[in-house]
Each structure stands twice: as structure tokens, then as C-alpha cells.
Nucleic acid binder design. Sequence first.
DNA 1: TATGAATGAGCCTTCATTCAT
DNA 2: GATGAATGAAGGCTCATTCAT
Lengths: 219, 219, 219, 219
Amino acid sequence: MATSPGSRRRGRPPSSEGRDTREALLNAALALFARLGFAATTVRQIAAEVGVRDAAIYAHFPSKQAMYDVLFAEAGPPSWERLGLNPEVLAARTPAEVVPELVRRALDQWSTPRARLFGSFLLREGAGPSGLGRVYVGIEATLEHLAGLFAHWQNQGLIRGDVTARQLVWELFGPLQIPRFLFLHPDSTDVDIATCRRWTDDHVAFYLACTASPERPRP
Amino acid sequence: MATSPGSRRRGRPPSSEGRDTREALLNAALALFARLGFAATTVRQIAAEVGVRDAAIYAHFPSKQAMYDVLFAEAGPPSWERLGLNPEVLAARTPAEVVPELVRRALDQWSTPRARLFGSFLLREGAGPSGLGRVYVGIEATLEHLAGLFAHWQNQGLIRGDVTARQLVWELFGPLQIPRFLFLHPDSTDVDIATCRRWTDDHVAFYLACTASPERPRP
Amino acid sequence: MATSPGSRRRGRPPSSEGRDTREALLNAALALFARLGFAATTVRQIAAEVGVRDAAIYAHFPSKQAMYDVLFAEAGPPSWERLGLNPEVLAARTPAEVVPELVRRALDQWSTPRARLFGSFLLREGAGPSGLGRVYVGIEATLEHLAGLFAHWQNQGLIRGDVTARQLVWELFGPLQIPRFLFLHPDSTDVDIATCRRWTDDHVAFYLACTASPERPRP
Amino acid sequence: MATSPGSRRRGRPPSSEGRDTREALLNAALALFARLGFAATTVRQIAAEVGVRDAAIYAHFPSKQAMYDVLFAEAGPPSWERLGLNPEVLAARTPAEVVPELVRRALDQWSTPRARLFGSFLLREGAGPSGLGRVYVGIEATLEHLAGLFAHWQNQGLIRGDVTARQLVWELFGPLQIPRFLFLHPDSTDVDIATCRRWTDDHVAFYLACTASPERPRP
DNA sequence: TATGAATGAGCCTTCATTCAT
DNA sequence: GATGAATGAAGGCTCATTCAT
């Protein structure tokens, strides 16, 4: 992955090499922060991964911390909008149809290399307010976004009504987080990802069985 | 917490001071590793926390890494045995009675300062096989230990039988891990701990409602 | 000799200062290794001698050991070629003329500050295979280079023929080594060097008297 | 050679272990100083070689430097007296008989492990006044001791008279020093020692041939 | 006399960063 | 925009030594 450094001549490179050195540096930094942690990652490593010298970094970022900050800001909650799942549309269908798709899409997103990197990155850096806090924000956003949908289903009698809609969402997505972080990390193999999917499928089946409205749906 | 070093004179301290420096160093290291991560923790910090000079560490451990290794080896799965929950005894009671107690005890253990430290420590260091892997081992141990109990309840018709006992255990404890790591970290306040307990209680209530055998218990 | 460091500002020095830091570092290291030995020499001393901070060394060499290795590699046998003594040319002259000149040139070379430094350096570092071994290689090279010349003289009856030519060379140069290392060290004064020359002259006179062919030269 | 430390119980050992810990320490120190040099030798190494802990050294010597000083003081010139060669007695015999014996005895002494250690020790520590200076003192003592003998032979016409007796001694022993230090070091093998002896024998033969009085001995 | 535990100094090296080019 | 050479701070660790036992 790392271009061998030292082969580069000095001075400003032809602009054909593109302006994406900055992007490349960010990617390298993300990968290394996720794998090693911020403190254990050196600017030399980041630069080497991109094939430049460490001093070149300071043409793009004022400091190592600044790279971290940029990444941290990007590491926002997974956007449900980006998932193309419109609650209004979904409301017309039944939980048995929608829930598996919901989970599948979430898993697809969590499985992307970039998401796995961000996940490890957040997990590592600060159990307290910083890292896991960010995960929490993501969860809250999900709850917010989907609670309406589940409430609608409750009103229709398609899903049990004896707990809040928020909790229903949480009971669906909360249990997925452990397999997610356990199996979806930057070094995951295909086997890991498949294992994760199996755990997830089992949970979804259980969830649907549990939450199906106990009484028969009203006519 | 940190005794001020530098005041001590040169040689061996009089035994009247009677402190177990080795243990103290391990505790300080655990706290710092959990809070800052291994790489960001310096041996001088560890030593200062105990009130000795950094060089004194090397009379007890061959290296900083060795301290980590000792801690890592200690950070085993939470022993269910130590929880004083005997499956045979529990089998005589109903899930509605036992499950909340089970969870309460687990939470009690996870809430201890030491467990919170170890949790953060493991979370930080190595998402892949090392840190979270250890968490996974803990989960597996739990599944192993309690699956028999749940199977017994299934046989008695006290709990739904349409999923495996293992999954029943997982559906109980899996969802607790996120609130656990979210709210039970080394810097948790009482509010954090209370919040965690509330999430947990909600889940237990939901779980019991879901898993109660759908057919009425056999007479 | 040491430029005072610490006055320099942070970044790259303006090229107007135009110094070859790498060479300067090697020279300083050689002097210190010779005087104090490798282990007793600190990188800070080396750097200070050159007027830079110790960290600057690592822009030029990967380690202190690497500096040693470079010097050790350089400390090859004194090149007779460099002495400008061509055996073919010398063969036309008599031992009584050539031998004193040979010795004088060797002594001139051994007397240079750099040669004295290398001598002490080699002497210090490893009596066994490393240091003195290198001296031995130098001696062997000399024997090799000059044996032909002495054999030629033997054939002409200009020098005694009852020992091998190799031994004749050795009997000339071997005895010079003790005064050499005794008096030609990095701290030699002019008096030391003069003393060395006196011992040497005495030996040469003795050598010529001894090795003159005992029989009268053939007509 | 090193007893494994750590097996010793604490406190004062039974006096049966003898009072030679001090001697053992000195021997270990000599070996290490010779092999590694003073600076590169640690008190831990010395102690370990003897099977005690480093702190124990300070029950016998006030400092590492003190050990060095004791050794250095011992490293006196090889005593010709100890060789049992009485110049008066030798004077009654011819150079052709005495010289080979003289050299053989010197070589025997230089070949002892202890002498080899002291040799390397002196060679290493201070090319200038300290180490080689000591060697020089040894040489001077030899010259002093034997000059009378050679002068006697000169008077008898048994050996050439055109150089001073002092130089005759020097021309005999000076050339031996290089093979001595080259082949007689602490790690010498039997092959090394044999090689040294061969070089030496060649030199002695050459020396005798050279120094035999050119004129026929007076009747 | 020997040990374990501690100190203070210092060592080699690494790191993030700066600056002239 | 990128580089090489430099800095200052610090980091892990070793060393000689001290002291209570």
C-alpha cells in the first residue's frame, strides 16, 4: 500500500499527481489511528504510507492533532438519509418485511472498510466522552429517526404496544452493536463478516418473533 | 492520589512504610492505561502515581510492556462463580424472579471501579483479537455457564422454546453491553451508573415480556 | 573546538553556514572514540563537538553504532599505493637508499592526526578479531606489497638471502609498531613524535647493518 | 562459569563459602574489563559472573573505579625475577643458548590466561599515558634488567658490538610485541598460541643470525 | 556479607514540529 | 507542495550507588 519514499525528487511535484495528497494523508491517518491509536501513530508512519516525508504533512495540516480533529468531525453518526430508507415509504409495509431490510442495510454500511475504520477509531479514542460518546450520538440519531415508524406500526397493531417505540428501536439495534464491533474491525476477514451476519440474522428472527403483536391484528 | 516523590532518600525504604509497591504500580498502570491508553501513558506517570521514581519500576517489572501483559492476563472474563449464582439452585425458581437478580448482580460487578478500569483498558487496546477478543471470551463463558439453566426453563415451559437456549442467554446479556461500556467507564459519575441501571431495567422488563412462554404454562 | 550549541534556531540552517555536518560528526566521533572508547563516548558529546544537538545526529546516521561502523570500515589498512612508492621503480635502487625512505614515508603517514586517531580507535575497540585484527590486515597488506621488492634485492645479492623475503619485510616493519602505538596517539606532542622517530632511526640503522649481504656483492 | 544467581538465600553466607568472593570479583572484573572495556562493563555483569548481586560488590570495594584501580596496580610489568632468570648465571653461557630460552620463558609468561587478560586490559584502557604507558614501563624494566647481560656478551665478542646493548635487547623483544598482542588475547585458541610461537621462533633465528659477531670471536 | 528496593543521573533514541530551500 | 536538516522535549531504560534488613 505504501509507495516507497525516497524515490521522489525534491521540490513541488507536478500537479498531475493531484491534489489528493491531503485525502491520502487523511485515509492513512484514519487507518493508523484505528489500528494503533492516536498516541502510538507517528506522523512519519502516516507520511510513509502516502509516500511523502513527514514534513510534507505540515503543508496540509497544522498538526497531527488537527488530522485527528478532521477525522473525528467526519466520524459522524451513520446517516440514515444516506441509506435511502424513507420512513414514510416504509410505513406502508409490515415490520416482517421492513425490519430485515433495515438491518441488512445497516450492516452493509457498517461493513464498508471506511465504516470499520471509523468504528475502531472511535472505540479506541476515549471511552469516556469522546469516542463512545460519538457512538451514543449515532444511536440516539437512529432512535430519533425510526421511532416514528415503529410508533406507526404500534398504532396499526402490527407490533407489540406494551413498550415505548424508542425502546422497540433500541431492542432491535442495541444487540447488534456487540457483534458489529467484535467482527467488523479494520482487519476483518470475509469469515468475520459472515459470522457477524449470522449473529445478526438470528437476532432479527428472534426480534420479529418477540415483537409480533400478541393479539391478532385488528381488522 | 499521587504521593509526591523526590522526598524519599536514596536506599531501600524502611519496612515501616510497609507498602506493596508492586501492587500499587499495577493499579496505577491499570488506571492510566484505561484512561489514556498504553502508548500515551509514560512510566514516569505510573511511578509518580505511586510516589516513586520511574527507575524503581524496573525493580519489579522488566519493562512497561510487561506491566501491560500482567494486567492483560489478569483481565480475564468476569467469573460467574465469584458471583455466587449457582445454576442448580436457580433452576428451582422462575425466570421472572431469577433474571432480574442475574442482571443486577452482573451490573454490580461491572460497576466496581476495578471492573470499569479493566473494561476501558480492554476496549482501548486492540479492537481485533486482543481487547474486544477478551470481551468475547467473557461473553462465551457466560453463555456456556447459563445455557443449561435456560434450557431447563425451556423444558419446563417457563420460557419460549422456539430459539436455542444459547440465543436466549445472548438476547438477555448482549444488549446490556452497550449501556455498560457507554456508562460504566473509569470516570463514571453516580448519574452515569444510575442511567445505566435504568436502561438495563427497561431491557429486562422487555426481555421477560418477550420470552415468557406464549402458550399458557402447562398445568 | 566545540561550537556552542543551543544558540541555533529551530528549523533547517541557512545554507550560508555551509558546513558538512555529516563529515564533522564523523570526525568528532572518531576523536572521541579514540580518546574515550565507544562505550564511554556519548552522542551528546559528539553532537556538542560539532555544535548541534544530539537529535541532529539521527538525521545523518541511524544510530551511534552506525557511526562506529562507518569509521571502522574507513579504518582500512594504510594504502601503500597512496604513499606513491612504486616497487618497480624502487627495485632499481639499493636497500640502503630505499629502506630509510620507505620507513620515513610510513612514519609520516602514521603521524598524521587522522592516522593517530584511527590507530587508537582500532587499538581500543576489540583486541581480538576486531581492532588488532584490522592492524594485522594492514601488516599483511604491507608484506604482500613489498615482499617482491625484497626478493628482488635478495636475487641481486644486495640483502641477505638466508631468510624469506616476507620475513625481511616483517623484521623491518614489525618492530616499528610498538614505538608507533606508544608515541603516536591522538594526544602526542611534538616531543613524542620526535622520540618515535629516534627509535625508528635506530632500528633502521640496525636493520641495514644486519641485513646487508654478509658476502661481498657479486661483481 | 557464572553460577546462576537468585538461587542464593539472603543474608550472610556461611563462611565455608570462603573469603575469596573478593578475589572472584576481581577476576571477573579483569576478564570483563579486558573483553569489553571499563565503560562497557557493568557492575551487574561482574557480580553475575561470581553469582552474587551487584549490591554485594560494595561490601568489598567502594566503587567500580576502585576495582579498576586495584587491577591496574596489579598489572605491573612482568617481573623478570619471577622468571627465575639470573643474569649473572646466564652470562656464563652463549647467546645462542640463552636467547631462545629467554624468549621461550617470556612467551610462556605472556601466554598464561592471566597475563593475556592483563594485556588486553592495559591495551584497551588508555592508549595514552595509562594503558600503553604501562606496557612501556614493562619494556623499560626489561631493557634495564638485561642490558648488562648483553653488554657482557659484547665485551666477550659473542655478539655484535656496533650498537648499544640497550638496542640489542630492544631489537630482540620489541618485534615480539605485535605477535604477542595479536595472538595472545583472552580469547586465544591453541592455534593462536602456536601461531604466535612460530612467528617468534622465526624472529629469534633471524636475530641470532644477525647479531652473531661478524668478526670471528677473539681467541 | 549479601540482598532487594530505591534513587538520581544520564543515555540512546524518537517524536512533533520548524525553517530555509 | 515537498524536502532535509535541525530543534526541544520527552520517553523507556540502564547504571552506579545507597540504605535498611
